[in-house]
Simulated assay, not measured.
Amino acid sequence: MLHAMRVYIPTTLAGLAESYKAGELGPAPLDAFAVTPGLREWYVSDDIEELEYAALTRAAQASLRLLALHPDVPRRRLVVAVDVADGAVRHDPDRALDPAALGEVRLTRPVPFIEVAAVHADAADAERDVAAAAAAVGAADAGDDDAQFTVDGAEDHELLWYATQEIPNLIG
């Protein structure tokens, strides 16, 4: 049996709806996050749940950046957790310890919905904070401390876990 790896793909509700309709997440390559050697070294932890939470958090930050690029979609961060064969995942070891690239991986093929393990999404009550964070993320990336405070406000909201059979209700 091939070894599987848990990978976190950032998206939006609209992106999830399109992927669900298509039956797969894609097209490839897909930017995602996972427990990479660099992430392990940065967090100095052997606790896989803690490391996977760190990768999930990185994916949620990437989802926020997608929201900043797409002001017309609901203001909820969304991450799709998938289990894929190790061979479908690439990461750049040269960027392994770059804090901006921690946990970054690239999926080399589309991901059929059968490989989706779960979806993590903000609750509706997070939308105001997430909207403010999406509007501020560019300034925060440029070093604006007030904007970073606003972005951190979105991270105060824990993403909720949804089983795959709940996806139609989530996107509906």
Rank of each mutant, 00 (worst) to 15 (best):
H91R: 14
L13W: 05
P71H: 02
A126P: 12
L78Y: 01
V130D: 06
A136L: 07
D144F: 02
I167A: 00
L107S: 05
R65Q: 08
P99D: 08
A136I: 10
L39D: 00
M1D: 12
L56K: 06
P93E: 07
V84N: 00
R6G: 05
E18Y: 06
E158G: 11
G38Y: 03
A117R: 14
P74C: 07
V7P: 02
I114V: 09
G143D: 06
V79E: 06
V84P: 03
P71K: 04
L66P: 03
G23N: 05
L39F: 06
R77K: 15
P110K: 05
M5S: 07
L39G: 05
I9S: 00
D83H: 13
D98G: 00
L51R: 04
T57W: 14
R128D: 14
V151G: 04
R77E: 11
A32G: 02
D83V: 09
R109K: 08
F113V: 15
H3F: 10
A118G: 00
G26P: 02
P29H: 00
A68L: 00
Y8A: 03
Y8V: 09
A147S: 01
T36N: 01
G38F: 04
A163Y: 09
A131G: 08
R58L: 10
H3N: 14
D83S: 13
D94S: 14
H91M: 13
M5R: 13
V82P: 08
A121L: 04
V116L: 08
L97C: 10
R65I: 03
A14E: 13
N169C: 09
